[in-house]
């Protein structure tokens, strides 16, 4: 454990890996947000056929490991479609699809938590369905969804380490090469763990702060798992 400062030589590389990890997390969350909201709305208000499709999508991505999904998309899409894509694009798209499947469950719970009476009230005031959605349902649902959504942030952020299987140079992958290069795996992985831990802890505090600013007292949701 002596001379832990050798790690500073690799500060640039580690920072590069950390930035990649954060970028992938945010891309996955953002894409998953759009997919999650749309499929939750489809599942709550859509027709029978749409519901079947959405649930098949959700079961597939929630029931199988992210690693298998990454390998599958990374290797098969170029063969099936002829599109050339790199680890970055393949990783981002897979994370979005994966996160969307999880976020759908949270959004569905939140949308259903907005009381049915409000929908009737909005209708009686002459609001269209789209207006009701934009001005009544979503503003409330997006607030109460924050606590379960926080779990998804943590879980997806930590899952980005799976991107190592398609060779993306994120924090875990870079640590692995530094560990192999320096023959000091113990210190390197310890240091990496601390980076993840600090990042997650700070993020949790920030999200908690945001939630407490925007939350609606008395309106909480227990998420549908």
């Amino acid at each position: 454990m002596s001379d832990i400062l050798f790690i500073l030589e690799f500060a640039g590389l580690i920072l590069e890996g950390f930035i990649m990890t954060v970028i992938m997390t945010f891309l996955g969350l953002a894409g998953g947000f759009v997919l999650g909201v749309l499929s939750a709305l489809g599942d709550v208000y859509g027709g029978k056929f749409l519901k079947i499709i959405i649930n098949a999508y959700v079961e597939f991505f929630r029931g199988s490991p992210l690693i298998v999904q990454l390998l599958m998309f990374y290797f098969s899409i170029p063969i099936l479609t002829g599109i050339k894509w790199d680890a970055f694009t393949a990783g981002a798209v897979t994370l979005m699809l994966n996160s969307g499947a999880y976020q759908k469950g949270y959004f569905k719970g939140a949308i259903e938590a907005v009381f049915k009476d409000q929908l009737l009230a909005a209708k009686s005031l002459g609001m269209t369905f789209k207006q009701t959605l934009m001005h009544i349902v979503l503003p409330q649902a997006l607030r109460i969804v924050i606590p379960p959504w926080t779990n998804e942030y943590v879980s997806l952020g930590l899952s980005t380490s799976a991107l190592i299987v398609i060779g993306l140079r994120e924090l875990t992958n870079i640590s692995k090469s530094i560990a192999a290069q320096t023959f000091r795996p113990l210190e390197v992985y310890l240091f990496t763990s601390i980076i993840y831990l600090v990042w997650i802890t700070v993020s949790l505090k920030v999200l908690d702060y945001i939630y407490n600013r925007v939350r609606i007292p008395g309106l909480e949701v227990t998420s549908e798992i």
Partner: peptide, 8 residues
Amino acid sequence: RGIPVLVF
């Protein structure tokens, strides 16, 4: 809960 299980 704060470190990836792969890193562990």
